[in-house]
Design a protein around this nucleic acid. Structure first.
Lengths: 201, 201
DNA sequence: ACGGAACGGAACGGTTGCGTCTCGACTAGC
DNA sequence: GCTAGTCGAGACGCAACCGTTCCGTTCCGT
């Protein structure tokens, strides 16, 4: 392997100089292993094996499985957030639904998400990290859609935001992550129409 | 412990005579342990310990962790199903939502459900059992509500059942099992109203 | 009251993962 | 080219759990 082709980076100021390609291999292996085994059975030994790395390479970077999970998941979660703003509730909802479907349809994401969720239910510290990074940023995006619609008069001023968030996220998550049936493109429009109807009710 | 107070039962015709109270203790311990540890980390050793039983008592009843899970979960899932039929879509939905909330609000259920779901995503055999016992019976109940509404003319004849099922289950599941925010009684009516609006759209 | 069987408990050998540590090899920065 | 530090690999002691097998005890059916 031509390791020199990839520049190294100083991850922590004053910290050890770690090689970026090793970090990336560990990151990829971590997610694949997490999807295959689940958080509970995830072994760092298997992650190192899959990455073609030594266990020491992991412990040089993260102090524990939980810290590794928290950092890596937070990183990728932040990337995937977009806030639609088409000036129209129906189109905003459609975009939001489509984006959610694309994100959740990734085979690794759809396996990891329910797993981390289940773990968060019993691991307070992990829940803290996941909620603050994943849920809150998505919620902010969804809340922005609703606020815009209220300002334009598409939704009444006394709209219950929390309740409407359940409709923006619930049906899609249910279909993709729980029932695990793929959603066709033609379904998205009808789905969005029903969500808008629910929000206006 | 007065074991004689509980009648024994011959679980399998011609099989060994197992003691019912031990079976019950194992069953309770299994669910508590499952809620505390998650499916992946669930150890039958801990189940036996918590039940005050020997491991052999488990292996006399079930051949494996998966078989134990499949049988026990199927049992309790079947109990909890009711099909509302008030002759009115709005009331049917309200009842369905309320029943779902009560079931999911049980602290053990709300911890176990996401866990089994995540496991089902990677364990084909377990998924088979859970889906056929849990999802299908709930789906049948929900489909009955929709069929009745169609017959009464409350919903159009070409209603997409699958799509509507997402709205019957998705928002409630999202709120209780994902976001983990308790739902007040006053929310149920508004939630049901929005679901009905979505179904009619 | 008796025989048989299930009981709780403990030990078995085997497997897996943890987190630490030590190799010789390679690569960075000076 | 020299030194320091990361690299892959894997052995280490420790702990947990697996599924099985054995106790001596307790309970059931007859």
């Amino acid at each position: 392997m031509n390791r020199a082709a990839i520049p190294t980076s100083r991850r922590r100021p004053g910290g050890p100089v770690l090689q970026e390609d090793v970090t990336l291999a560990l990151r990829t292996a971590f997610f694949e292993e997490l999807a295959a085994a689940g958080y509970g059975k995830l072994s760092l030994e298997a992650v190192a094996r899959r990455a073609g790395a030594g266990k020491a390479a992991i412990y040089r970077r993260w102090p524990s499985k939980q810290a590794m999970t928290a950092e890596l998941v937070s990183q990728v979660a932040i990337e995937a957030i977009g806030t639609p703003d088409t000036g129209n509730l129906r189109d905003d909802v459609t975009r939001f639904v489509r984006d959610s479907l694309v994100a959740l349809s990734h085979p690794i994401v759809s396996k990891i998400a329910p797993d981390l969720l289940a773990e968060a239910a019993r691991n307070e510290e992990l829940a803290e990290t996941l909620l603050s990074h994943v849920r809150d940023s998505r919620r902010k995006s969804a809340a922005h859609i609703i606020h815009g619609a209220v300002e334009r008069g598409e939704l009444p001023p006394d709209t219950d935001i929390e309740l409407n968030l359940d409709f923006l996220a619930g049906p899609v998550y249910w279909r993709v992550a729980v029932v695990r049936v793929p959603v066709g493109d033609d379904h998205i429009d009808r789905l969005a129409a029903k969500i808008v109807a629910a929000m206006k009710a």
